[in-house]
Write a protein that binds this DNA or RNA. Structure first.
Lengths: 231, 231
DNA sequence: GTCTATATTATGATAGAC
DNA sequence: GTCTATCATAATATAGAC
């Protein structure tokens, strides 16, 4: 935390008369808004250009704030980046946990089908997430280490368990479940990361809602298999 | 072309005594070597960091040359980038054309199987190619337009025709052939672009030769289907 | 919290000696 | 073709007024 920010927090903790308190709250609201704007702008910039390619100035410009406010709110460039990753991956994990919680009791094959459908739709709606990971996950380095150590939780176990269960039911293609999960990630998400090229070759945007659904359907046809008939 | 380079070429065209000619040839050889070193270094840098993230100085450092030689040999930053793309995509297209030429007369299903196998092996051996495209193909912009207009040839038609033929033989999953090609590209290549994360989650490098072959096998299991029995 | 101003380093690009 | 030196701009980051 920057010193000035810490001081402001301390001033708030101390007793303040009513009028001053209102002003403090107004300022806090504006601060929170600025911070959010910067965070969203930084998400887009880091997704598009990667850590090196993005600049605090372009982030500030996109967020419509003065460039030094980016550093003020997040201390360093790596600080903004970490905040972006925490926010993006946190949101992603939460979305899946809530989805899975809603599917309690559903059989694993259906469950896997449904969260894979969600995954495809999310890849179309939030390709930034794929880009953010993509820029880091390709080469060893401090940032991917940080992601692995502080943000990558036990999400993969859930996918693995569901795939194993679907395989045991004879409903999913055979093979190492986590390997298959990465095949799925590639098949499901890559087309949205190549959207400009795809648009030229296919003659339509992969983000077109109808296409997204068709895409999800075909992806599932690749991985799911008809289970053997019982008796 | 830089003026100094044009002058050197002119001097070469003029008559020169034997000793001087040898020196000119030595210089040309060194120049060509420098250019090649820069091109290879630039390929790695652009693949890793994208156009904005890479710098002419980091390219020069990697190539072990003085930083201004990068500009001398390629005029501008976009000039180096274009040379990299021409070289990388040219090599890629040539490799496939030669492979296909060698497969003249082979039935389309086998042909598709074999060039897909090559594609997977190439993605493992040269992930730079996927990165170079990846950094540009995600968003509209001058560079992807340049790629589409000057480098993207008729390669996609070949893939489409082979996929259609394999579908007609009942040996390939149904669906829009070019859409399926992008699904294949994602399934085949994405795992190598996430190598650092994959290594952590799977416990082994996706570049491991045995894994590459297993990966290629599973990818084909996703897309190829048993054709209906005859008679 | 925000704004102006500034320090410092990195970057793309050029000029001129050899 | 390469090397030294340099320029102009853009980058990360900080200091201090309000």
């Amino acid at each position: 935390m920057p010193e000035s920010k810490a001081k402001a927090a301390a001033a708030q903790d101390a007793g303040l008369e009513a009028g001053a308190l209102v002003n403090v709250r107004k300022r806090q609201a504006r601060s929170a808004e600025t911070r959010t704007n910067i965070l969203n702008a930084a998400t887009q910039e880091f997704a598009e250009f990667g850590f090196n390619g993005a600049s605090t100035r372009s982030i500030a410009k996109r967020a419509n704030v003065l460039h030094n406010l980016v550093i003020y709110h997040f201390e360093t460039k790596i600080g903004i980046w970490q905040a972006v990753m925490r926010h993006a991956l946190g949101w992603y994990h939460q979305a899946f946990e809530e989805r899975l919680a809603g599917l309690r009791g559903v059989d694993p094959v259906t469950k896997l089908r449904l969260i894979q459908l969600d995954f495809v739709r999310m890849a179309a709606e939030h390709p930034e997430l794929h880009w953010l990971m993509s820029h880091e996950a390709g080469q060893r380095g401090e940032r991917i280490e940080w992601i692995i150590n502080t943000l990558l939780g036990s999400g993969f176990e859930t996918w693995r368990d569901l795939i194993v269960a679907a395989q045991e039911a004879g409903a999913y293609v055979k093979g190492d479940p986590l390997h298959l999960h990465y095949l799925f990630i590639g098949a499901a998400g890559r087309i949205f990361m190549l959207s400009a090229e795809v648009e030229h070759v296919l003659g339509k945007s992969p983000f077109d809602p109808d296409f997204v659904e068709e895409h999800a359907r075909v992806v599932q046809e690749l991985f799911f298999r008809d289970p053997p008939r019982k008796s």
